[in-house]
Design a binder for these strands. Structure first.
Lengths: 196, 196
DNA sequence: GTCTATAGACAGATAGAC
DNA sequence: GTCTATCTGTCTATAGAC
């Protein structure tokens, strides 16, 4: 595939990524994407076989960026505790977007959970990445015993905060819960002091 | 309106309630509802002005049942701690449905959060009821100081567990989190022992 | 006749697919 | 840009109760 086509393909995926997040997958038509990136709708099927294919490409992109993010935290913070606190902070750093559109992973997973099968499993990949990463941090911090349970609990609390902040259009849910999570994390290792 | 019409109206609302929960609101067409309760689609507009009207009727019904549920707990359990523990148990009692279709309130709120305005606010009513009720229980237990924050946190954790159990089709999220919530609640009042 | 309720055909818009 | 399917919502004809 020549360069020009690849650029346009990336442009479609990038536009679709935003629209799927902001409006939801089912509420975003091909015409919406076409209008947003200024190409005729007929051209889609040169790049993608079906609408689900676009979704898969979008999910791939998100997964890549998530991996990069997690690796970035590992490099930046040597202490697993710091890494986990940093992870909890995404709900306050991105609070405005979460209040408006919810968590990108959560809303998509919930939307797909009621029907599709193939893209559904695919979209779960991001959650699995996060759980595995958090599990590794908890294991390094406290041993492998309860690491999975703790990792799940942390993800679950962030997810719940995102859902309710979005539903109520109220960022308080995010800020209060992030503080609670940070306190919960630091109470696990009372002999350390966390410093940004 | 005479009796016969009211019965059929209720039948439509009841069928729509199930379908909206199982398939989602946007993925349930009038034809779906019509097929499910065996009436022609043209007949809908004798009972409801628009599709949103059906949703409003569904939400009204859910709100009524929720109120009855909360009042039932108040009558059955005198101790606010018991009431809260009982509330946390809905995610394990209804685990099978939650795994398949998610939390009825959460999925609907999330679906509506990306667009509609009028039914959206309406659907939030159920969350507000629960938060207010839980806040009252926490206030009775520990005083009014942190009651709202604690009520939000509890709802948030249940919601997060529901989202992830649904996304992963894995009830473990629900069972583990319910135990964690119960332990968290009982740790707040260490001088009491909870007994079912 | 009139009110309640039923029945289905039909219009206009929009979707995905090619 | 065209094709087909489907969606919401409308329109009219009709059946029975009082």
């Amino acid at each position: 595939m020549p360069r020009k086509g690849e650029i346009k393909r990336q442009q479609i995926v990038s536009t679709a990524n935003e629209l799927f997040y902001q409006r939801g997958f089912h509420q975003t038509s091909l015409a919406d994407i076409a209008d947003a990136c200024g190409i005729p709708k007929g051209n889609f099927y040169f790049y993608f076989k079906t609408r689900d294919d676009i979704l898969n490409a979008v999910v791939d992109g998100r997964e890549e960026r998530l991996k990069a993010r997690l690796e970035g935290w590992e490099k930046k913070y040597a202490d697993p505790l710091h890494r986990l606190v940093r992870m909890s902070e995404i709900i306050v750093r991105d609070w405005a977007e979460i209040v408006r559109f919810g968590c990108p992973m959560g809303t998509l997973a919930l939307e797909l959970s009621k029907q599709d099968d193939e893209p559904r499993q695919h979209a779960l990949g991001q959650f699995e990445l996060i759980v595995a990463w958090a599990q590794a941090q908890f294991a390094a911090l406290l041993g492998p015993r309860d690491a999975l349970t703790l990792a799940r609990q942390m993800l679950l609390r962030m997810q719940g905060a995102a859902v309710l902040a979005n539903a109520f259009s109220d960022e308080t849910w995010l800020f209060e819960e992030q503080r609670a999570i940070a306190a919960w994390l630091e109470a696990m290792v009372p002999d350390r002091t966390h410093k940004e």
